[in-house]
Computed example of a mutant assay.
Amino acid sequence: MKNKYGLIILAVSFNLAFSQVGINTPNPRGILHTDGQKDNPATGASFTPAQQINDVVITGAGRIGVGTHDPAVKVDARNSGNGAVGFGTSLLTAVAADEGAVRYNTGMEYSNGNEWLPLLTAQPATNKVIVIAAKTDNTVKLVSPSALVTTALQNRVSNYLVGWTKAFESNSGSTFNASIGIFTAPRNGVYVASFTTDLAPLAINYTADPLNPIQIEAIWQLYDNTTGVLATNIVNTVKCVNTMSSNSNGNIDAGSNCTASFYMTSGQRLMPYIWFNLNGLNTASFSLNNSGGYNNLTIVEQ
């Protein structure tokens, strides 16, 4: 009987002695504790930052501390030294990696479960693109960007806005081609684009086609990263519609505005245009209100 009790006490003592494992330290601070430089004190719970910085600890809560004995999250590398975390590349699809996965791929990316997206905050603020431009004439391209350039707008036709004057552009100053009204993304990212237009006062009177309401549309067209501006090159279109009264007693301003966010890959292009259905005249005889700075464009990289 005494031998049995002795074996039980020995087994309990062994369990207590080895419930925590220390490598290079007799004083482990977790279930597993590695002291890289063997510089921790043999007893006590007081450790300097310099002593912790070369340690790796796995706690009873299943947390890993690298350079810290008190990890607050599942993996914690915060310390007073070089506490960076390195990420490698991955060929996994975003679906296979699942949401929350992080990788390095010419920049930091994360998976939302469907696609890899860039961690935009990693871009230095000094590299962000900002474009501010104004339009002070009536130069447009009708029907499509490759069509005729004219100095008057046309009813019920796509009027691509060209002939801008840049007020400001950060960095290289070459992302926005003011003469043709095309912005080209210098890199992958989210860009917020906004433009406003105001037609010179005109009489609104259009009753011939009840299926086409009286309206003015401000539209952003996103093209691919080739040189084409055909329908096959269109990636996305965002349309902002402003409806108007069916008839006016006198001349009034018809304004439009469109603000949209786009995720653009390097080389993709944005171009603004307007389409309106304001009266029965389909001749190229409409003008922008070029007094007072009504026609403006802003593009900001996020």
Rank of each mutant, 00 (worst) to 15 (best):
Y5I: 10
G6R: 11
I8P: 07
L10I: 05
S13R: 02
F14Q: 11
Q20P: 01
Q20K: 14
N24M: 13
T25W: 05
P26I: 05
R29C: 02
R29D: 00
D39S: 14
F47D: 03
Q51I: 02
N54C: 09
N54F: 07
D55T: 13
G62K: 08
R63N: 13
G65V: 05
G65R: 00
D76V: 12
A77D: 08
N79Y: 03
S80R: 11
G81Y: 11
G83E: 06
V85C: 04
V85L: 11
G86T: 09
L91D: 11
A101M: 03
Y104A: 02
G107N: 00
S111G: 11
N112G: 12
N114I: 08
E115Y: 06
T121Q: 10
A122N: 10
T126A: 12
T126M: 07
A133H: 03
K135Q: 07
K135E: 00
T136E: 06
V140Y: 00
V140T: 10
K141Q: 07
L142Y: 03
V149P: 08
T150K: 08
A152F: 13
L153M: 15
N155G: 11
R156T: 13
S158C: 10
S158K: 14
G163A: 10
T165Q: 14
K166Q: 05
S172G: 09
G173L: 09
G173Q: 06
F176D: 00
N177E: 12
A178F: 03
S179K: 03
S179Y: 04
F183K: 05
T184H: 14
P186M: 09
R187G: 00
F195D: 02
F195N: 10
T196D: 15
T197D: 02
D198W: 04
A200S: 15
P201N: 06
N212M: 06
N212L: 07
N212K: 09
N212E: 08
P213Q: 07
I214S: 10
A218P: 07
T227H: 01
G228H: 00
V229H: 03
T232L: 06
T232V: 10
I234N: 01
I234V: 15
V235Q: 07
V238M: 08
K239S: 12
V241M: 05
N247W: 03
N249S: 13
N249I: 08
S256Q: 01
T259A: 01
S261A: 15
F262R: 02
M264Y: 01
M264P: 00
I274T: 09
W275A: 07
N277Y: 12
G280T: 04
G280M: 05
S285K: 04
F286V: 01
L288N: 06
N289S: 09
G292I: 09
Y294D: 05
Y294K: 15
N295V: 03
L297M: 12
I299N: 09
V300F: 08
